[in-house]
Simulated scan of single mutants.
Amino acid sequence: MGRIIISRSPTSSRNTSLLSTHKVLRNTYLLLALTLAFSALTATASTIFMLPAPGLLLMLLGYYGLMFLTYRLANRPEGILAVFALTGFMGYTLGPILNSFIASGTSDLIMLALGGTAAVFFCCSFYVLTTHKDMSFLSGMMMAGFIVILVAIIANVFLQIPALSLAISALFILFSTGAILWETSNIIHGGETNYILATVSLYASLYNIFVSFLNILGVTRND
């Protein structure tokens, strides 16, 4: 008696793929919302208790160390705890920055930066989710942009030019906007199947946009 081979139809495979994609997207947005809330909580605590700035070395060690830990645990349940540790730490680093705005009487700029960040995220997400456009072509431009930003940051360490600092912040906003478009497209087209890694990518982009807006608004107000 011959074997009966049951093959999965293209329609069934496509539906399964769509369900998987929607699950990753849903879990990503849920975890992103929770980590943003936790980050806001640690930033508020850091602001209220006026915790000292971590310093460049500690900030780099904390960020990259926790980022490495998150990537190592991304396929395990412990990865969620690593994400909260990372975003909580980044929220703590915002405290001294926010305190400087509050102390100078420009706390209204914090809300402007927050509103600008939210607008960028929702517009980018809405565009990709409604058009389903493949944004993978941005990867090459983003790599070039990253190199330009890195060179500009190194140059500004020695030059300390305010105009260059503003340019770097503007480049960070453009780069992070592209990263949101690319990551969202990557999720809905099945390129990213790990919602923990997707959450970290989107969070980092939002963090960079918020801090860059603060820098631009702060310099403009001081002028």
Rank of each mutant, 00 (worst) to 15 (best):
G2P: 12
I6K: 04
P10H: 06
T16S: 15
H22M: 11
L30W: 01
A40D: 03
T42K: 04
I48Q: 14
A53E: 12
L56M: 15
L57F: 14
L58C: 13
L58R: 14
M59C: 05
L61E: 11
G62A: 09
Y64E: 09
L69A: 13
T70M: 12
L73P: 11
A74L: 02
A74C: 07
A74R: 06
R76V: 03
R76K: 13
E78Q: 15
G88D: 09
F89A: 09
F89L: 10
Y92N: 10
T93Q: 07
P96C: 12
S100H: 12
S100M: 13
T106W: 10
T106G: 07
S107N: 07
A113D: 02
V120F: 05
C124F: 06
S125F: 13
D134H: 00
M135A: 12
G140K: 15
G140D: 15
V151H: 08
A152P: 06
I153F: 06
I153W: 04
F158P: 04
Q160I: 09
I161M: 14
P162K: 05
A163I: 07
A163N: 04
S165G: 15
A167Q: 11
I168A: 12
I168W: 12
L171M: 15
T177G: 15
N194L: 01
Y195H: 07
A204W: 02
L206M: 10
Y207N: 11
T220V: 10
